[in-house]
Amino acid sequence: MSGAFTKSMARNIFYGGTVFFFLLFLALSFDTHTQLPKRDMRANITPQIAEGKKLWEVNNCIGCHTLLGEGAYFAPELGNVIVRYGEEGTKAFIQARPKEGIPGRRSMPQFNFTDDQLNAIVAFLKHVNSINTNNWPPNSQG
């Protein structure tokens, strides 16, 4: 039995199988890219939203929060925070964080954002909320 299956056969299956499945993955990825414009709402991306995404990145928000479920699990999901708090509520929350934290509790740092920056962050989060995520998260609590 085992004599019939040689090392060179195993090697050929490895190379052949890898190439086949990688090409299949590329084909699926290509198909995804033809469908994405209807789902990722790219037509709506403004310079303000782009600025919001940059602020999201350079302040390492993903180090505590999740966005569409990806990130750290220390603080709430923000893909739908606009549903939970509304635009004004979100801005007010970010602005109200005490500089020295809250005794005994987890607290978000105070980033001292300007009004323009806050508007950009909210525009970005609103954009993320508009993405077609197959109805995820299950409810508004994220």
Binding site: K7, A10, F14, G17, F21, F22, T32, L68, W136
Partner: peptide
């Protein structure tokens, strides 16, 4: 060879388990 074959034929398309809820098709 058998192990790494199994790894890549499952793992490459397995990337799809990250594409459930991030805006990618159903």
């Amino acid at each position: 060879y058998v192990i790494v074959t199994l790894t890549l034929i499952t793992g490459i398309i397995g990337t799809g388990h990250h594409y459930f809820w991030i805006g990618t098709p159903e």
